[in-house]
Design a protein around this nucleic acid. Structure first.
Lengths: 243, 243
DNA sequence: CGCCAGGTTGATTTCGCTCAAGCAATGTGG
DNA sequence: CCACATTGCTTGAGCGAAATCAACCTGGCG
């Protein structure tokens, strides 16, 4: 609602920079016109919510720019951050396809622009272009594989190893590694949100960071991280084994 | 290989009892003939492995009868049981669709009959019948939702609550609830495997069972469980809240 | 200026793991 | 048929990692 007029009007699926990376890249021009016509674009500031858990699902959201976090809460109000979503990613397809309410919530972590495509349009497209369904299927299987990894990690690895793994994942998108194996990383997340990503309390996050610094594996200054040698992080993942 | 001649020859997709419940129910007679022709059926005894983690994935497995457990191991050899699969369920579709190696293993937990359908045939069918892809997509989204729930639970709920939840899930398939809210349950799993399902050690499983018995919530004799009142299990899920 | 959210630190507690032993049921070989 | 391993489960003692509770510090903002 509070999206400025310009943001809702100017967006165009045909010129959208991220289209090549999305499931929508398989659409014909005619089909894309359908999307372009019915889509609604909106800008979000950090902290603004795209949709809430238990909201009715009226369609899918496609990220044009920014960073969106997908959260999930349990009955006691404890929250985790399930995953980060980037430009080109489509949100809420799970609930839409299951004709279900949203079972998690999405919140902007950076200033973001997100397009909404209503369920009717999506269903029309799925019926018309079978390849689109297969694209979503591939996406779903990828998410499923990641979720299963996360289950395993959270039950078998200690906190420090999980955090090392998180840093390694963030490296791929936000890090720079030099020839010596050193890495510089600009974190896209607050400490709280990093804690929520690996399912721990903020206090434990602080202590884990401290322990990595004491072992001279990494240095943290604000959201900048310097890792002496990436291999040290990899070692953390297997260190639990006795010999 | 060790499947008896009768088992490999006699199975027929057209007469398969579970077909109505599978994604394959959308196939035409002609398409089903293709499956029937190329499928390989095999019987498994408890403990026998259908496929291993990191094995190349050559197709999907469809459960005709029995019970299959999907396991996943981490680098240190610790193992969890991700989910149980029942007649009609299709295994390994994730890896097949991602053209990836198996990222978990499947093992018979009861005497089971499982059909194998090679990747080529599946791909042919996916191309020919778009509805099949949508069926798999729905299946994947369901698994994804369940996996995300499991992530949340394993990081936020204490062991006892997770076990209560497991009993409630098993109730739907293996339990009988009477008018008073009492439940009788015949467990399909050993204690070890229940422990693996909620990501704890067998010793902790024993202690958790004991604590439920001491609080007079349930009685365990072998694989038979009697729960005084289902509501007590539901209470466990929210008990962590203060006030 | 004072407030407040985000972050750090310390003290204490607790939950689940580790290690170790014991036990019942089942199997095996002499 | 008995001595002996094996496997699944239980129990106990002690430990340790992470949560909890509480205080405090910092920087941004009204």
């Amino acid at each position: 609602m509070e999206g400025s007029k310009s943001s809702t009007a100017a967006r165009n699926c045909f010129t959208c920079q991220t289209r090549g990376r999305t499931e929508w890249c398989v659409l014909t021009d005619e089909e894309l016109k359908l999307v372009d016509k019915s889509k609604m674009s909106r800008d979000y500031l950090p902290g603004e919510v795209v949709f809430h858990e238990a909201d009715a699902c009226h369609g899918v959201h496609c990220i044009e720019s920014g960073l969106i976090g997908v959260r999930k809460m349990n009955a006691n109000g404890q929250e985790i951050l399930l995953r980060l979503c980037h430009p080109g990613d489509t949100l809420g397809y799970r609930s839409m396809l299951a004709s279900d309410d949203h079972n998690n919530s999405a919140e902007a972590l950076e200033p973001s622009t997100v397009c909404f495509i209503d369920a009717g349009t999506v269903r029309t497209l799925l019926g018309r272009n079978p390849t689109l369904g297969l694209r979503f299927l591939t996406h779903a299987t990828k998410d499923l594989g990641a979720a299963e990894d996360k289950v395993l990690q959270s039950t078998t690895l200690p906190v420090r190893a999980r955090f090392a793994h998180l840093l390694l994942v963030l490296k791929d998108r936000y890090g720079v590694v030099d020839a010596d194996g050193a890495m510089d990383l600009e974190l896209p997340l607050s400490r709280q949100d990093m804690a929520a990503m690996i399912g721990i309390r903020p206090e434990s996050m602080s202590r884990t960071i401290k322990s990595l610094e004491q072992d001279d594996i990494a240095r943290f200054t604000g959201r900048r991280v310097h890792v002496r040698n990436i291999d040290d992080l990899l070692d953390e993942l297997e260190l639990t084994e006795g010999l």
